[in-house]
């Protein structure tokens, strides 16, 4: 099975994240890590490979320093990587990103494309659906479990009442969610870390993937960040003293915040 995992390098959520002052795009110059849900996608891809054989290719679109995310995925056990990197891609929004990635995916070829359901930087959560539309294949989103049987693929999607089982025929695009142990992403072994160095990383540009420059980049973006303000500092918490009516007071607080 030819499995492609799309991974994204994002600014570390544990550090202060900033937007660039010149064009309001995310500052990706420092503290890049692989997006957490992408690690789950890699893990699911590796499990599929272990069960059905085949090859796992990592695909990322991002600046040159995004190789950190690629190396992590390769150290976990992916076989090879394609890095779509081009100045012309800077500022692409979700729509043009999905176009660029779909062009690269057409070139690579795939039975299944797996990606995290959202990234911690932009959090749009739309890419899987857009990719599936662009590629003209079924989309199986928010998967907590993936099963493949011949050309049939099915996923579990958690719901309030249990889970939905969604089925489709390969090729397909799957987005995955966070899962508890033992389905958490594996830690790369030292052998994996050393082996990752020797795995091929193919760098391609806009022309290689036959991407129309008019449909990408800041100029072609359908969504624009017109203004932004820093989130206000977190205020002091509310202390509820329990004088026999603590439960009621706590409930009133939750109601006032529209939680219940």
């Amino acid at each position: 099975m030819n499995i492609v995992v799309c991974v994204k390098q994002v600014p570390d959520t544990a550090t202060e994240r900033k937007l660039r002052s010149d064009d309001s795009t995310i500052d990706r110059s420092a503290n890049g890590v692989i997006n957490e849900l992408c690690e789950y996608a890699v893990e699911d891809a590796l499990k599929l490979k272990e069960a059905h054989g085949g090859e796992v290719t990592v695909l990322t679109m991002g600046p040159d320093q995004a190789t950190d995310a690629i190396r992590k995925a390769l150290a976990m056990g992916a076989d090879k990587a394609v890095h779509l990197s081009d100045e012309a891609l800077h500022g692409s929004d979700a729509l043009s990103t999905s176009y660029a990635l779909s062009q690269a995916l057409k070139k690579i070829g795939f039975d299944v494309v797996i990606l995290g359901s959202e990234s911690t930087d932009a959090r749009t959560g739309m890419l899987a659906a857009m990719l599936a539309e662009r590629l003209g294949v079924p989309q199986l989103t928010l998967a907590s479990k993936i099963e493949v049987d011949g050309s049939a693929i099915s996923i579990h999607r958690q719901t309030d009442y249990g889970y939905d089982k969604v089925e489709a025929t390969l090729p397909a695009v799957v987005s995955v969610v966070e899962k508890p142990d033992p389905f958490k992403p594996r830690y790369p072994s030292f052998k994996g870390i050393m082996a990752a160095k020797k795995k091929p990383i193919e760098k391609i540009g806009v022309a290689d993937a036959e991407i129309d420059p008019a449909q990408i980049g800041l100029a072609a973006a359908w969504s624009v960040v017109s203004d932004f303000t820093a989130a206000p500092p977190r205020g002091k918490g509310v202390v509820v003293n329990d004088e026999g009516d603590g439960g009621t007071k706590a409930a009133e607080f939750l109601v006032s915040k529209k939680f219940i």
Binding site: R186, Y187, P188, S189, F190, K191, G192, M194
Partner: peptide, 19 residues
């Protein structure tokens, strides 16, 4: 163990990480 930490300095032919 799953990460291979116990095999860090052990050669690969004996199940280690070859580090």
């Amino acid at each position: 163990g799953a990460m291979g930490l116990f095999g860090l300095p052990i050669p690969e032919e004996h199940g280690g990480m070859g580090g």
